[in-house]
């Protein structure tokens, strides 16, 4: 099962085991990772599960849909090249070892 590491805005790291098909947001929520709000529950509606995907992994995740791309213009912290909504990234063996950085704020 693939692993994913969350790095908080102040640098704390949490490494968790995910199930294939689970979204990165779900992994965070199930394990109580602080810094992800996910108000809409995973529908790319609220832009409160924003993460910065570490550069080596950016091209391994399936690309953002048209609507996710528009929602990323609504995130509370600055949008950067690795910005994604974590509810839209499905974990898979290809993403094993994924590192994502959490933004300063989600709302």
């Amino acid at each position: 099962m693939p692993k994913v590491t969350f790095v908080s805005a102040d640098g704390r790291e949490t490494t968790l085991t995910a199930q294939n098909g689970q979204s990165v947001m779900q992994v965070a929520m199930v394990n109580g990772v602080e810094g992800i709000v996910a108000e809409c529950g995973g529908s790319a509606m609220c832009a409160t599960c924003h993460v910065y995907v570490d550069t080596p992994f950016v091209h391994l995740a399936a690309p953002a849909s048209e609507i996710e791309n528009e929602m990323l213009d609504c995130v509370a912290s600055q949008r950067r090249p690795g910005s994604r909504l974590s509810c839209q990234i499905q974990m898979s063996d290809a993403l094993d070892g994924l590192r994502v950085f959490l933004p300063e704020t989600q709302q």
Binding site: E39, C40, G41, G42, S43, M45, C46
Partner: peptide, 15 residues
Amino acid sequence: MMTFGTGLHSCVGQM
């Protein structure tokens, strides 16, 4: 919570 549903058809006006 399921109030607004979840996934593909979750309430589009929830925000």
